[in-house]
Amino acid sequence: MSVAASSTRSVVRFGRTPKITRHLRKNRMTQLPIPHVNILMREFAPCRLEDHYYSTLQDNAMYMTYVHESGPRPPPRSVRLTYDPTDPYTKNRYNPPVGGSQLGKKPPPPSSPENAIRLEKISIHSMLKDAISSRSNLLGLIMAMRALTGESYKAGGRHAVDGIQIVRGKKSVGGWIRPGIPVGVKVDLKGPAMYDFLGTLVEFVLPRLRDFPGVIMPPSSSSVNSPSSVSGVVSFGLPPSAMGFFPQIEVNLDAYPKPYGMHIHFVTNATGLGAQNRARALVSGFQIPFVRK
C-alpha cells in the first residue's frame, strides 16, 4: 500500500463485510454458526477514569501512602506450628500457627511503584426478600442489574466473565431462609465496565441522593486489626430510592416491578495494616465522599 493511499483511508470506517465462504459448524441448540477462530472482545473505547487513574491518582496515592524503609525488611519471625511437620503421622494435617491467625497483624508490603494502590474490581450484590416466596420475583432484579452493569455470562468470549450470578441460600434459618433457594444476585465488574459504573455512580446518582453526606466511616477508635480494616475493601449500600437515579434505569423506571437497593464493594489491591484507609484514599480520588460520624 502506498503512503498516500494509507493516509487517505479512514481507520474507523469499514466496507462491506466479507462473504462467508468456509463452511461453519452450527450450534445444535441455537442453530447459530460457530466461528472457526476464538473471537475475543477487548476494549472498544478509551476509558476516561482509567486515564485519570494513570495520569493523576496513581502518583498521588503512591506519594500519600509512601512509608520510608531504610534497607530490606528482616525475614519474618518464624511462628511455631501446632503439629510437627516432620512427623509423618501429622504431616498433611492442617497446621495452624500457635497464637492464632496473623491476618490483622501483617504489615503492608513495602511501598514501591509496582504495588501502588489500584482498584481491582467493583462487586455489586442485592438480596430480595420476595424471592424466598417465589423465585420469579428475582426477574425484575436481574433485569435491573443487566441494565445497570451491561454484563452477561461469558460476554465478549471471555470465560472469566460470570455476568449476573444468582446467589442461593446457604443455611436453614427458621421462618426466613432455606439452603439452595435463590435469594439474590451479584455482579463482579472489572476493567472498563467497572470504571463506567463508577463514573455513573459519582456523576448521576450520589449528587442527587437526598440526605447523603457521604459514605460513613467507623469511629476512629474502632479496631485496626479487624478483617474489614486490613482487607482493602470499601463497602457501602444504596437505598432502593437511589436506583431511579441511574440513567440506564431512569429512562423506563416503570418497567421494573419495584425499586431495588444494592450493596457496593470497591475491591483494591491494598493488604496489611491500614489497608482500608489506603483504599478509602484511592476511592475518594474517584470523588466518592466520606464522612466520619
Binding site: 481507520v11 472498544f44 473505547a45 478509551p46 486515564d51
Partner: peptide, 23 residues
C-alpha cells in the same frame, strides 16, 4: 491535571473501531 480527555492515536482509533465492530 488534564481537564480534557487525551486524543487517541491513529493506531488506537483503528483498534477501538475494530473492537467496536466485533462487539
Amino acid at each position: 491535571s488534564p481537564i480534557v480527555t487525551r486524543t487517541p492515536t491513529l493506531f488506537e482509533r483503528a483498534y477501538y473501531a475494530y473492537q467496536a465492530r466485533i462487539r
